[in-house]
Design a protein around this nucleic acid. Sequence first.
DNA 1: GCAAGGTC
Length: 658
Amino acid sequence: MLGKILCVAEKPSIAKAVAGHLSGGSYQTANTGHTYTKNYTFDFDFGGQWGRCNVVMTCVSGHLTGVDFGPQYKSWDYPPPEALFDAEVMTLVDQDKTAIAKNIETQARGAMALFIWTDCDREGEHIGGEVRTEALKGNARIEVRRARFSNIEKVHVMHAAKNPIDLDQRQIDAVSARIELDLRIGYAFTRFQTKLIQALGGVLADTMISYGSCQFPTLGFVVDRYLRVKNFVPEKFWSIKIMHCREDIDVVFNWRRNHLFDRAVVVILFERCIAAKIAKVTKVLEKPTRKFKPYPLTTVEFQKAATSWLRMNGQTAMTIAENLYNKGFISYPRTETDRFDKGIDLKALVAKQIPDNRWGLYAQDLANGAFKQPREGRHDDKAHPPIHPIAHCEPAALNADEGKVYEFITRRFLACCSDDAKGQQTDVEIEYGDENFHTHGVIVLERNYLDVYPYHSWNNTVMLPNFTLGERFEPTEAMITDGQTSAPSYLTEADLISLMDANGIGTDATMAEHIAKIKEREYVFTRARGGGGGSNVDYAAARGRRGDRGGGRGPRGGGSARGAGNGGGGLEEFIPSKLGMALVDGYDRMELDISFSKPFLRKELELRMKAICEGTTTKQVVMCDSIRQYRRVFNDSKQRQSVLRSSCRRFVLEGAVQ
DNA sequence: GCAAGGTC
């Protein structure tokens, strides 16, 4: 009779893949009482202390538990919100996960060991801790180990199975600190500001005004850019442009000084050029150049591309990618990794695209020898490869939006496996009077990846006539040009995602949700770029539109209905509502120790989590310090609440423009 | 009625 080992992965796909590798493809499948999870049974030789064992491989579906306050904190009236900073927090298995928890508890009975196969990131470690808790309920003596793996190639999985490590309690602690702090500050401030602002009445009387450590900085980015556009003062400038026609080509030479803000100075310098009459070629440089193929695709880059090039919002794009993943067409869509692991057979993946009638010939070309190893980015989450197609998919099998996403992911992958585009560039510099001018030409010689990746273009090519170093010529024309500095643009969703990414707001899997959330709360709205008159839409009008939808919330989770239509093609840009402006303005005027509309608070939490992981501090210390800090900010906010109240009155009820 | 993070 063989000993038993229970293996638990973070999600069904990993459980199935690992079971397949360890069993050599033959395992028994049993239901668990939960729709998405299965138990796979087989034998495997773990070597060392365990030897050949009977294995049950199963999984959870993300986090097993959630946190909440006790029933005595249900009311928003009593006790006051600040009580939530000390209130006991309960950790309970989610309602819809009880069957999963029970399955682990049951399977742990009679098992010698529990092997945890959750993703090798911080959240995965915490999920591993949740799995351990359930297993120990069924078997207090079970030995708990953790498999360390960064991809699900067979060799790698086998190695992970035979070389388990321990769960990292520090990472578990770091995540549980984050969970508890987000709950306390989120609930406390949501209740505080909602009650405060609802009391103003009018359109605000029944508005939910949530606070979250990710929502507010996201709103802050939108407001910050809005104000920069609004407060922008254009400045006039002047420049000198030289034209010369040779070999029937009109060449434009641009001024090395670019432009100056003093017209009189430009006129003097221009007159000296004219007086000199003859220009002299001081530099002619021809050299090869290239346009680099893109990096392997991360989730953040996928969302930026989808919102910029595929005309859909980030949330819709993610939902579609998840569907394609669940149907087995693409790899896991939540990844920070922008380099392919050495073990992965990229050529085989390319070959799978040969049957396609859009890019099949191109894939064939790569397979026939044009294949180039993808570039290696610097990010590796050690849990998932870059997003790539894993099976060919006929267009007819997908709806329009799914088709666009699949096409993008596939073309991106083929582009990664191609050669860079190559060209020849020419730089010519001239001296004219005391001033220097330059021109730049490019000829594309080999398009390479551009042939399969229409999202990039290299069309700004300019062919230059021949110039010789040291030659002198009289320019055809010289003129003073004028212009003015222009305001930055309002944020696009891609810009917003970039800012969130750079500032550690949300994760690849949640950024789109935070953006959707601040739209749902009507802190911000989007409109087609160039639309509107430049002032933000009235908050009351926005509320009226919600009423038109029948008073209910928008379709839950159903991004596709609204996400697909972007008003016929233009890029969408983000504008704060009057309520969004009021919130940022109000909290800014309160001058709290730590700004709510900036990413500082979240960044601090991230640093504290990192410190817990590195062992330089503990969860207890972090909880104590953070709660003290939050409570102080809360008390300050309460004392200065009239400031927030008057901002809301001014922006929303009295309709101030700014 | 409130958060952010996993995942289906």
